[in-house]
Simulated scan of single mutants.
Amino acid sequence: MGLGNDLLGAQAGAGLGRSRSIWNVLHLDPILLFLLMILVGGGLFVLYSGADRNIEVVKAQGIRLAVAFGVMLVFAQLDPAVFRRWSPWLYVLGLAGLVAVLLVGVGAKGAQRWLAIPGLPRFQPSELMKLVVPMMAAWYLSRHFLPPTFGRVMVGLFIVLLPMFLIVQQPDLGTSLLVGMAGIFVVFFAGMSWKLITAFFGVVSVSAPLMWFFVMRDYQKQRVLTLLDPQSDPLGAGWNIIQSKTAIGSGGMDGKGWLQGTQSHLEFLPESHTDFIVAVLAEEFGFVGMLLLMALYFLIILRCLYIAVSAQDSYARLLAGALTMTFFIYIFVNVGMVSGLLPVVGVPLPLISYGGTSGVTLMAAFGVLMSIHTHRRMITA
């Protein structure tokens, strides 16, 4: 009690001696917020061209992003201890949602990924798991001494693999990979030995042929084959990649100019305002535009890694590091698939591609990061 009273007295004294800034009051990190606002503003600028000058698409995206920023603000207000306390319950709730999708989910375009609950908007429980899985893995591993023992690593991997398996059944390979990577990064950051890492990649390599024959669906196999040889079906499965690479290459060093792209505006490039919006940016702004975008992403990741490194406890560090690397995976996979280096898996470019669900999830993750950083600063000030 004496230590607690001393701490409260020290905080009160600090508060009397120095006024709190507006950023502390709102629990926002100004540097990260500024970088995100630049990214979102530039994204709307590119989206207007990618959507073929359809201002309604830009307005709809603006509304979605406004909601996403609101979600970020709400998450930033919560103390990291709240996320830690609720992690197991949210994990169980998320698993129940994934099972419900398989039983009574709403289907579209050959996939069953949504839940429609009366009185609520239709939603994807798998999006929730992008946040909940790393929260749960961080909660479990941070309760024990680090680095974790072999048994605890196995439990951590089971926590990650179970929702992955359920999401693959929907089927949604792209989301399952993002969920899996978010959780695996937690296990890695907890201090997983290099022997276990080598063994893990060995198991993945050995199991790849089994996945090809017994797990992957026909359309997923077709995506891999198309990656290896897009010209095998240039007017069918290979069309997207061929047109995307054509758009990227035609941009040259400084691009054709805003609204001057031919591949997107002449409708050669499909999904030009969603998954393949990078090709629009590369065609109209060239290598210089792509370099600026990658630099902006790099600064955001660098700031998030700083937040992770300076976090107060193991739970906060593991969670912040995993959320940061998940953001990186979004960028890596989208740019890789649009440039023909990775199979097409339907992963949007973060905060640039048209769409609301992934944007809200990402901004919620940034809200968690800001919560970790600003609450720490208030305590240690």
Rank of each mutant, 00 (worst) to 15 (best):
I197T: 08
A116V: 05
M216G: 01
R217M: 05
P148N: 09
W114V: 02
D275S: 01
K195A: 08
P234S: 12
I63N: 10
M135G: 02
L73T: 13
S142G: 08
H273W: 04
E127G: 01
A51S: 15
S314N: 11
D313G: 04
W139T: 02
G9D: 15
G286W: 04
A308I: 04
F83T: 05
P80D: 10
L65Q: 15
M154L: 15
L210G: 08
L228W: 09
K109W: 08
L16K: 15
P209T: 03
G346W: 12
D229H: 13
G41N: 11
L103N: 07
Q169N: 04
L296V: 00
P348R: 06
W258N: 00
P88H: 12
L78C: 10
V335N: 03
A76E: 11
V101R: 08
H265Y: 07
G9T: 13
L323Y: 01
I167E: 03
H27A: 13
H375Y: 07
V57Q: 13
V71D: 07
W139P: 03
A12N: 15
R223M: 07
L281K: 00
V347I: 15
L305W: 09
A10Y: 13
M216S: 07
N24Y: 13
D6I: 10
E267P: 00
V179P: 00
S126V: 03
L210Y: 11
G107R: 13
A10T: 10
T262E: 08
A81M: 11
E56V: 10
Q170P: 00
W114Q: 05
S49I: 06
I242N: 07
V71R: 08
L362N: 08
K245T: 09
E271N: 00
V99C: 04
S339N: 12
S207K: 03
V92P: 02
G202S: 09
M136D: 02
L90H: 05
V215E: 08
V345Y: 10
E283A: 01
L8K: 15
M72V: 13
I331S: 04
Y306F: 08
L98C: 06
V155I: 15
V187K: 09
L323R: 01
F328G: 00
F213V: 10
P230K: 13
V160T: 11
A138Q: 06
V99K: 07
L318C: 01
S310L: 11
V25P: 09
A308N: 03
G62S: 15
A237R: 11
A12P: 05
A365F: 02
L33Y: 12
I307W: 02
I38A: 12
L293E: 04
G286E: 10
